[in-house]
Design a protein around this nucleic acid. Sequence first.
DNA 1: TCGATTTGACCCCC
DNA 2: GGGGGTCAAATCGA
Length: 354
Amino acid sequence: MENLGEWERKNLQNELLKGKEFARQLQVHLNVRPSTSSMAAASSSSYDGGELLVQKILSSYEKALSLLSSTKSPSSLNANPRSEDSDHIAQTNAASRKRNILPTWTLKFQVTPGMALEGSLDDGFSWRKYGQKGIFGAKHPRGYYRCTHRNLQGCVATKQVQRSDDDPTIFKITYRGNHTCSQVANLGTTPAAPEFQQQNRRIDQNLVQSQQTSPDALLNSWASLRIITENLDTVHEPILFPPFSYDPTSSYKAADRIESTSTDDVNITEFSPMFLSPTRCGSGVRYFSGSSSEMSEGFIGNQKLELQPKKSELPEIFSSPTSGVNSQTLGLDFPSGELEMEPSFTFDNTTFFS
DNA sequence: TCGATTTGACCCCC
DNA sequence: GGGGGTCAAATCGA
């Protein structure tokens, strides 16, 4: 934490505050009594899983914020000898520091063999490829993409696309950093926008091509979830994950599977923005399990989701032992993690990694 | 002509 | 020292 610059601290704090606020909104919807002692609440058998979960969420955010506020000023970073040489080096170091603290999460897509990969998994954002490298031990090269608006708008979002060694039809896409460009506003963070609502209705056509590539944006990408943690019994109240937004031109074979699953699956017509109506949202994702230190997973219909924390990301903030359900598990902020989605997602991959 | 992609080189971090 | 991430010049294509 001591290695965080002012910029990172502010962003972290803002993200944590947002997550905390979202949790509070969820608390309101669940009619959870505000409690100054989340642990006391946690030990109370009168709370059902969802309410308990909310208490833990708030507790985790409060602790994370507390940890953040208790850390040193980043001014000590100037003592780094590498930053004294030149502006270029200083900028490089700054980039490296940002690299280390930027939220990272991973999606896995399974594609239909033979289909062309258009736009390297079009997720709705504009990406510009800036590199490709062979990775040690990997059969396939890794592609590096950054937001097209990086220069104009300073958007720091990047993604890496790596084809799986075991199954060439599986692509692992690692997103890093939030989109700060105008694309965010156009791709679902404005729930009232007609496009957004229309996209919600298109879920049955294009489920997995989430256009949200930031942690916050991912909030707009997921159907409501029911979450189970390793410390909790089944959570009966859904944790809300806002809807996917989709590329209407893509085809997605898993949608039928989702629609055909049982009654508590995603109610496609009732996707709602963040935390609007827990009871309205279905529970397409059956559950998430695990803690910040262990893999979490869940399902949207038949689709498996995995959240795999990366230990290098924000360890100070999210190391709280009571943060069994931290923002990542909830999708509130996804400080790091992996979402594995293996639907029969179809896209054109013939031009990828040519 | 301009934006995107390719690719070799550079640099940071482990 | 090696691997991974990024840079930037060269190249491509609309």
